[in-house]
Nucleic acid binder design. Structure first.
Lengths: 358, 358
DNA sequence: CTCGTGTATGGAAGCGATTCCATATAGGGG
DNA sequence: CCCCTATATGGAATCGCTTCCATACACGAG
């Protein structure tokens, strides 16, 4: 049970200086005679030497670690399938450049405590996962000199952050347009979580598209949701209580779509025969529940992968000029949206666009 | 854009030595006059000082960080609901003792690379999440002096690790016994992932219980699964091809149970009228698919929480004597298991035990 | 023979904390 | 008046590694 060998031990064993040893172990082989190199490498192997990354980090002022920061207002990571996919992409990229991840999952909203966890020298940069509006984490940028990339939210221009997210507006516009092309003119909407920018963006795109098509927005058909199955059920109850119903409901996400459909079915409203429904996210965990759901697919893994890549670049180059990446999403047409029962709209009929049905 | 302040800066600002500053900032207030304490604390606040944990770790030889190590043979974290719940428990405990988590998700099986990621001084201990049989991570214990706790697997005695897991054998014995008490004597089984100890343990308990009740095991009704929905579907196809069928099938996990039920239903075999099915895990993601599934519930969060606690103790005390924690699980009786059509067994009828139906 | 150039190596000062131990001062007892 | 103890503070080594810069030597050119 001996101590872990240090650089000094290796140097001693190899009969050369610490400098030489350090250089060779860092791969600067060409500085030395091959014989020296081999001696050092041999000694390191013989002793089972392993670089102490803490010491290295202190000396280099570089940890080769990034923080993956969950928002304290979020549901816990473990109930958050989204987080996992993004994280997976992050890990995949970091594997390439040999970086590590520190998980920062604050239970507290106290800015001071948050900072202590984050800005304590243990990470070179951070990925913030979909911070919500008004999150203390965003207060951060004023004081932090740490490179930061936001994954999963596109913030308003006023925030000077690099962001990576799917193109919520574009994708929802496409979806809405497609629904309109099916002839629907009476269209409802279930909103997403009120604190998420993505929810705002999706709603905005929905409204704008309706406006472009001169289709009136009926506010009593716009229901609040929060990206959960349960909220979809509640929305259904609210909607079904009304005297007149839309011919289609577009949901800001698959979870609420699933809840909505469930509740409708329980109430004897058949989907899609009596009412069409579209979702958004093509959430794999939801899919088995409503396998026929027409929705929009996007690549969360890719969001994480690119966020990591951008962050890595910022760290390496020191250039932290904000950028905004918007990834495209694809429609997945299944069977939950039927053509409108009676075409009455003013817009010209057009051909179907978008993804295919697996 | 000035440099981050260091201890020296604070000391200077407060007009005292670095030693004094360090002591006070570490909370040893009683060593000094209150006036000095206030001066130091004030200076630290004024400068926005934040201790550099890297330097601290080097000096203390303690990082206050543990590694959460996924098995390279595992599915990726993001498709692994189990991992998230355990991780969540881990985070909850670590929050209490102010430790952090480094995520170690090796893509490689190369032991040397694995070690470099793990044993490089950046963590004080590690939690291995459910390592599979023959995993390179287990080779580890011979060389590593790092405190390690295994979460989610109970290894054979020959491995000298502290483990935390649910009581797979006990829970499966209870479930099997309950099924037998319902009068079933023709009982099939879908096995879990062949590389997971939990799968072995569940199968063993199943067989032993049958043996205790003098119920013969029909090997053609024992089907291979691997903890996935798809494997349950395959098992159903295999089983339904046979000339004689069991009256009940016990599955080593909920996912394969769901797949099994799905496929049976598609083939016109009604569950539970034609065939009873029991699951195991009470998996929340599966539950919406088969809300009537009788299964066994256990607390993965608790597994993580306790694993973290044990590891923390080992780190603090230095005492790494192996322990094995087995957490109890509770039956959840729903409607997927009916009493056997005709009682013919030799065992005495007994009363129902186990959990309740929410 | 001297100088410059290039190659091979080592010395020593850091990185930013912690901590052992020494020192200084004040006050109380003999 | 001196010694001892307790209280308050600081000096300096240390953690293990990186890296700037110096040194030593050899060799060909001038």
């Amino acid at each position: 049970m001996k101590q872990k060998p240090t650089l000094r031990d290796v140097a001693q064993h190899a009969g050369c200086s610490i400098t030489t040893t350090s250089n060779i172990l860092q791969g600067r082989h060409n500085l030395y005679r091959t014989e020296t190199v081999e001696r050092v490498l041999g000694a390191a192997r013989a002793l089972g030497y392993r670089t102490n990354h803490i010491a290295r980090s202190l000396a280099k002022q570089r940890t080769a670690t990034i923080g993956f920061v969950l928002d304290p207002n979020h549901a816990r990571l473990t109930h958050n399938d989204y987080a996992q996919h993004v994280l997976d992409g992050v890990l995949a990229y970091l594997e390439l450049c040999d970086y590590d991840v520190r998980l920062i999952s604050p239970r507290s909203n106290v800015l001071e405590r948050l900072w202590n966890r984050i800005d304590n020298g243990t990470i070179d940069g951070a990925i913030l996962l979909a911070p919500v509006m008004g999150s203390p984490l965003l207060e951060w940028h004023r004081h932090s000199r740490l490179p930061v990339v936001i994954a999963g939210s596109t913030l308003p221009e006023s925030y000077e952050f690099t962001t990576v997210d799917i193109d919520n507006e574009g994708a929802m516009a496409t979806l809405t347009e497609w629904v309109l092309q099916q002839g629907h003119r009476a269209v409802g909407f279930i909103k997403g979580h009120p604190l998420h920018w993505s929810a705002l963006q999706r709603e905005r795109a929905f409204r704008q598209t309706l406006a472009q098509w001169n289709v009136p927005v009926r506010e009593e058909w716009i229901l609040q949701g929060n990206y959960t199955i349960e909220s979809g059920r509640r929305a259904a109850e609210q909607l079904l209580r009304q005297s007149s119903l839309p011919s289609v409901v577009i949901c800001a996400d698959d979870a609420s779509a699933a809840g909505f459909i469930q509740r409708c079915t329980e109430q004897g409203v058949r989907i899609p025969q009596d009412l069409s429904v579209a979702g958004f996210d093509d959430e794999p965990l939801i899919q088995p529940l409503v396998p026929f759901l027409t929705t929009v697919r996007h690549d969360k893994y890719q969001v994480g992968y690119l966020a990591a890549q951008l962050l890595h670049q910022q760290i390496e180059t020191g250039n932290t000029t904000p950028q905004r990446l918007l990834l495209p999403a694809a429609m997945v047409v299944r069977r939950s949206v039927l053509p409108a029962p009676a075409l009455t709209g003013s817009a010209p009929p057009q051909s179907v666009e978008g993804g295919s049905n697996p």
